[in-house]
Design a protein around this nucleic acid. Structure first.
Length: 576
DNA sequence: AATCCTCAATGTAGCGAATA
DNA sequence: TATTCGCTACATTGAGGATT
């Protein structure tokens, strides 16, 4: 069947409105189905998703504004809200669709993402050209979107599998939605003076939307400056674009907004159930005996190690127990909520089994290896003091991995609903806080940050890794919500000699995938995205769930006990 | 009549996937 | 790993219409 019409690039401006009106939706829908039936399918050793570095591949000058724009947007980890209120998260850019070189007219998906419910979304990005060129007309963008959606749909299962494996996400096996995301200038250049074409396009999109049962959203974003990237310097957007929607196609009724609140309560309830069920299997006197509602099981002070998940093998078990000194245990170490106990159990197990190499299988949510490349020579230590940041009390890393002088700083979360914030704005026992929450000279100080004033060197390093300048006032201080995350990133990228080496380390956040604070739009998620959006080094901040981490040991004989134990105790297990 | 402007057609650069 | 290939965005060209 004729799929040719989906590939037409001839849309003369003079007859744009007429040509759009003349589009026969039935014919195009048929072409969509035909293209789907004959779509290229990439061989298994050539993935669709993942493998992108966040850097452009080339050095020197370029005119490829659009690609840099897309890379910058994905790097910024900024999702946005679709007109029906659904949150969209961008996962990848330049997704190839060709199976063979000879596949004609098959390009790459500018950006690919999922809605918060796991529905696939194809984003076709249109920006004004490097030198102000108008770029393709809107119908071409629409057809590109349809083509990509058709080819994507033909490979849905395959792509869902890749998302699961490489990004730890679940995708619904549904026809993708299409977002045509154009810079405001691009839209107005083509449709500004031509109201007829504009309404023709919107009407046609509605028809397509109905005929094919997919969402088509036109989004306009504020024009923004792109700082072009290089092989070692990621492209950046000067400011995050602001979106609005010239057409509003409410596709699905907005899912209940109290969903998130319910989710948190349900999760807590399920945790308690799982915990107390597990507690039943313990012996009399193993718990501290206190029972208030809402309180998790807490093991007795006589045998704190009971809060660790341990193998039957005695040697391995004692190696795990010894991984964190007793003095370094947190106050709430004995609680089932303790993320420290979780971290010690899991990472201690990998180490004790001599299988740190398995960690390189774990994929972070950005598609990169969560822990970088690890080998059997990787060293792992817990509760490591970081002394490179000039802090009076050094940052403690939950877990520190080192492979050939590449450092990974791991922050382990479990029940926590957010990240630590800066202490200077709190009035702990003093009348006025040491900082009013802005990054500016205050209270007669010589530096803008109360911590810099006492010799903490965060701000010496921050400009090398974040878009925040230490020579400019900021209100509020960008470190307010991102304090702990930033500290972890700095701990990973600042070396012993006090130099920033962004390519020599990264930070990872490990969290419970069921914890709603980390779901799109949740409190912790927002903190992470704020940090990521300002971070100029792609991959410096990665995130991964415990669910994904324990998946890595499923086929290692020495570690099969771990997934079972963590499922038993906390209800954590890799999905499918 | 000279000049400017717009736009479609044609040509090129950039770049990464495909291929060998 | 190095080379080839072809797509997309971008640049240039020139026809023809509009303006001065």
């Amino acid at each position: 069947m004729s799929v040719e019409i989906l590939f037409s690039r001839r849309w003369p401006k003079s007859s744009l409105a007429q040509d759009i009106s003349n589009m026969d939706v039935a014919v195009y829908s048929q072409a969509y189905r035909s293209l789907m039936a004959q779509a290229p399918k990439r061989p298994c050793n050539r993935p669709y998703l993942g493998g992108r570095t966040g850097y452009p591949g080339t050095e020197g000058v370029t005119n490829r504004r659009e690609e840099h724009f897309a890379i910058a947007m994905v790097n910024a980890q900024q999702g946005w809200t679709l007109p029906d209120g659904t949150a969209l998260e961008l996962l990848d850019y330049q997704v190839p669709l060709k199976a063979r070189r000879a596949d004609r007219g098959v390009g790459k998906i500018d950006m690919f993402g999922l809605t918060e419910y796991g529905h696939p979304v194809v984003v076709e990005l249109k920006v004004i050209g490097h030198s102000g060129g108008a770029s393709d007309p809107p119908p071409v963008a629409l057809l590109e979107g349809l083509r990509y959606a058709a080819i994507l749909e033909a490979n849905l299962e395959r792509i869902a599998e890749e998302l699961r494996r490489s990004f730890g996400r679940e995708m619904l096996l549904e026809r993708p939605d299409i977002v045509i995301l154009g810079e405001a200038d691009w839209w107005s250049r083509w449709l500004g003076p031509d109201a007829a074409a504009k309404s023709a396009l919107e009407e046609k999109a509605r028809d397509f939307s109905q005929a094919l049962d997919l969402g088509i959203v036109f989004a306009s974003m504020s024009d923004t400056t792109v700082h072009y990237g290089q092989r070692t310097c990621a492209p950046r957007l000067a400011e995050l674009p602001h979106f609005d929607y010239p057409n509003t196609l409410p596709r699905s009724a907005v899912k209940a907004l109290n969903y998130v609140a319910d989710d948190a309560a349900r999760h807590e309830e399920r945790l308690q159930t799982t915990w107390w069920q597990h507690a039943e299997t313990l012996s009399e006197g193993d718990l501290d005996g206190r029972e208030q509602t809402g309180r998790p099981p807490v093991v007795s002070p006589q045998s704190p190690a009971l809060n660790l998940m341990l193998p039957r093998d005695k040697a391995m078990a004692s190696a795990i127990v010894a991984e964190i000194e007793i003095a370094a245990r947190h106050r709430h170490f004995r609680s089932f909520r303790s993320s420290q106990a979780m971290a010690q159990s899991v990472f201690g197990a990998f180490k004790a089994a001599g299988r740190l190499d398995l960690l390189s299988r774990v994929q972070a949510e950005c598609g990169r290896a969560a822990f970088g490349k690890t080998t059997t020579k990787t060293t792992l230590s817990m509760e490591v003091d970081v002394r490179t940041l000039g802090e009076p009390r050094p940052t403690q890393l939950d877990v520190h991995l080192e492979t050939e002088s590449y450092r990974v700083a791991v922050e382990c979360k479990f029940c926590e609903i957010g990240f630590g914030t800066c202490s200077r704005v709190r009035a702990d026992g003093i009348e006025t806080p040491l900082c009013d929450g802005t990054y500016s000279h205050q209270q007669g100080r010589r530096t803008r940050c109360a911590l810099s004033e006492i010799g903490v060197s965060y701000w010496n390093f921050i400009p090398a890794v974040f878009d925040w300048s230490h020579t400019q006032d900021m209100c509020p201080c960008p470190l307010l919500p991102t304090y702990q995350i930033v500290r972890n990133i700095l701990a990973a990228v600042v070396d012993k000699d006090g130099r920033v080496a962004p390519s020599s380390g990264h930070a990872v956040i490990v969290y419970d995938g069921r914890n709603s604070a980390y779901k799109l739009g949740g409190a912790a998620d927002t903190q992470l995205r704020q940090a990521a959006a300002a971070c100029s080094v792609p991959g410096a901040l990665r995130r991964v769930t415990w669910q994904e981490v324990v998946r890595a040991c499923s086929d290692s004989a020495d570690l099969t006990w771990l997934p079972e134990a963590i499922k038993e105790r906390h209800g954590i297990y890799p999905q499918t």
